[in-house]
Simulated assay, not measured.
Amino acid sequence: MIAILQWTTLAVGGGLALARIPSVLRGENRSLFSLYALMTLAVLLSIDGPYLAIDQALGGLNIANLILRFLIFGTVFFLGIRIARGFGAGDALRRITGPVRIAVAAAASLAVIVLFAMMDTAGSSAGLVAVFAKDPGHAALVEYYGAAGRLYPAYVMLALLPAMLQTLPSRLPILVRSSAALLAAASVAITLSLLSPVIPQSLEFLRYLLNYSAILCLLTGLALIWLSKSLAKRLKQTEPAELPA
């Protein structure tokens, strides 16, 4: 089930990135393609086979996992800016780009680096599963490391949540409201993922469910925004011109 969820998420992200290539070649909306590509790369680095191949090429010290954390930080930052601007959420944009954001990002980054350095990370292992299994001390460090990596994404998505909720009862097009609903669901899922350290091993699948459902919601929500804009543009182009007086 977990593997199906992982590869499905990868396929959706890759498909959406490929669908944007014609627009990129025309010089249109390259930032959206970049977001899809970065999110797809992040998913790729979370799957066993690709992760092991990449990390072993980097020395087999799970540096790929550290790269993944900061890849997610950067992706979420640019994603948050795009969503806030797209929905006209000035307050959210200020929270994402202001001094509080810098403090949260710096604290999360420092925590990720320090906790990674405290672990014996030798031996490539997707999700640091092998590192977790070394001893109780490493198990705790892996949990804290994961929580630190989810702190900044949760902050950004929570900053966007009020704007998404305000959009739901509005009179905006259904595609825009559907996008807001998906992005709100992603915000909730990412925030709940902060509880991963207290989720028992018997319910470990919930961690994957929260992470990958959040990514799928983000990808689909962005796609609906793009589709809504494309349809609005086409409708405008097909409107009959005003007859001269």
Rank of each mutant, 00 (worst) to 15 (best):
A53Y: 14
A130W: 12
L66A: 11
Q201S: 14
A106Q: 04
L38H: 02
L151V: 11
P200G: 06
T167S: 10
K236H: 08
V76R: 02
R82Y: 13
A223I: 03
T9N: 11
R20W: 06
I215R: 01
A185V: 12
S178H: 14
A107S: 14
V129K: 11
A19E: 02
H138W: 11
F73G: 02
A42Q: 06
P50L: 08
G13M: 08
R207Y: 11
S213F: 10
M1K: 11
R207C: 12
G27R: 12
A185Y: 07
G123N: 04
G221S: 14
V188W: 07
G123V: 05
A181F: 09
A163Q: 02
S202T: 14
I67N: 08
P22E: 05
R101W: 07
F70A: 12
S202M: 09
S46K: 04
P240D: 11
E28P: 03
V176S: 05
A139W: 08
L58W: 05
E143S: 14
G146W: 14
S178K: 09
R20V: 02
I72T: 07
L231K: 14
L222W: 04
A139L: 08
A42K: 00
V176C: 06
P169T: 06
F87H: 02
A186F: 10
P169I: 07
G49K: 08
S193N: 15
A184Y: 07
Q237K: 12
A140P: 01
K236V: 03
S193H: 15
D55N: 10
L235V: 06
L160W: 04
A223P: 02
F87G: 00
G98H: 11
R20N: 04
Q56G: 07
G74F: 09
M118E: 10
A53E: 15
A84C: 11
A184G: 09
L141F: 09
D135H: 13
R20Q: 13
V142N: 00
I54R: 00
V112G: 02
Y144N: 06
L243G: 05
L192E: 01
L5S: 04
I47T: 03
A180W: 04
I47E: 05
V142H: 01
A17I: 02
I199V: 15
M1I: 11
Y145F: 13
R95S: 12
